[in-house]
Design a protein around this nucleic acid. Structure first.
Lengths: 181, 181
DNA sequence: ATCTAATAGTTCCAAAAAAGAACTGACGCT
DNA sequence: AGCGTCAGTTCTTTTTTGGAACTATTAGAT
């Protein structure tokens, strides 16, 4: 399957990755969350090639994750800022940082501290259940197809067909399988 | 900069992405969390080429995210399972799913529901502060270099040098900049 | 008036990675 | 003997990156 077909899939992971699931895109977003806004600063900090940076910024703008706004005229210069939609990727970035702090740090530990302005303490992100507020791990969650999708499926939905190869016939249903462990 | 140099950087995002920041790797992990364990099932579900799948599984095993264990002899067959380290990527995957459910879903909404076994309700992941337990957004967090890293830096640490190009001189310090917004 | 610097790109070529399909090898079943 | 399963490997073509140089617009210095 080609990468551009990913967003066709009935899976929120696949669809999200069609926007941010790229080698460089998440590094660009990391810098956005650290306040970087300008082309050359992204380039300097990341060591990304200008060609690829141009492409990734353009895609993020197309998807509404960043907006390009002028910060001066004569000569016209533009910078890139996170939109609300972009800011909502913060949990993704925080989860990635936290895993890296725990599993990829050297003897010096985490390079950066995250301070919660509300309570004033260095914090790490904890994922909790939106219903009961308890912390969750992979083993606490079971997955089931949404009723709406099941209804559509039994009604013979075919909207998501058409991109299937001979080998691959499983994409008309939401991606599911047996639970973890 | 080349991609393989990413894990050299003093940034937990970069280091984590050196393991999972690949087009296909996160899709493989999604399937792992859905209970997929076998080579051909990954291939069938993802439409990934066998060559790339072999490579990604090997890398995930090298990084200790998956383990390969035999499930039969004669002929020997092996399957891939998440380790504890791998299971701890769950918050990353959940954050990605949640963003996709909110921003990339079509009129049918989220394809899958996540049920918290503890309380029995469909849930979405909420990121809270490990210290005070309040939900956080990007604007609630400020970032600062860790004291340990600052100490090392002023002591003239040079362990992370050596991969820098002429253009790119900023990697001896933890990646930081101005706060968001 | 010319030279240099800054910013945000574009263009070009070579190298690396991915897509797509066929092939391998160990075995089990009929 | 022939077919099927599984977990890969090999091969060729296409796409994407890396790396470096070039462009356009303006400000300020010589």
């Amino acid at each position: 399957m080609r990468w551009e077909e990913l967003d066709q899939q009935p899976c929120s992971v696949a669809r999200t990755l069609s926007v941010i699931g790229d080698r460089w895109t998440l590094m660009v977003l990391r810098d956005c969350f650290l306040g970087v806004r300008r082309f050359e600063e992204f380039e300097r900090r990341l060591g990304i090639t200008r060609h690829v940076l141009t492409d990734r910024l353009k895609k993020l703008v197309q998807h509404g994750v960043l907006v390009k706004k002028p910060y001066q005229d004569k000569p016209r210069r533009e910078e890139y800022r996170l939109t609300e939609k972009g800011l909502e990727l913060h949990p993704v970035v925080m989860a990635i940082v936290h895993w890296g702090d725990k599993h990829m740090a050297d003897e010096r530990g985490a390079p950066l501290l995250h301070v919660h302005k509300g309570c004033g303490h260095a914090m790490s992100p904890v994922t909790v259940c939106s219903h009961c507020g308890d912390p969750i791990t992979a083993r606490d969650i079971s997955v089931q197809p949404s009723p709406k999708w099941l209804a559509d499926e039994s009604a013979g939905a075919s909207a998501t067909r058409g991109h299937l190869t001979k080998r691959n016939k499983s994409y008309t249903k939401p991606c599911r399988a047996n639970p973890v462990q």
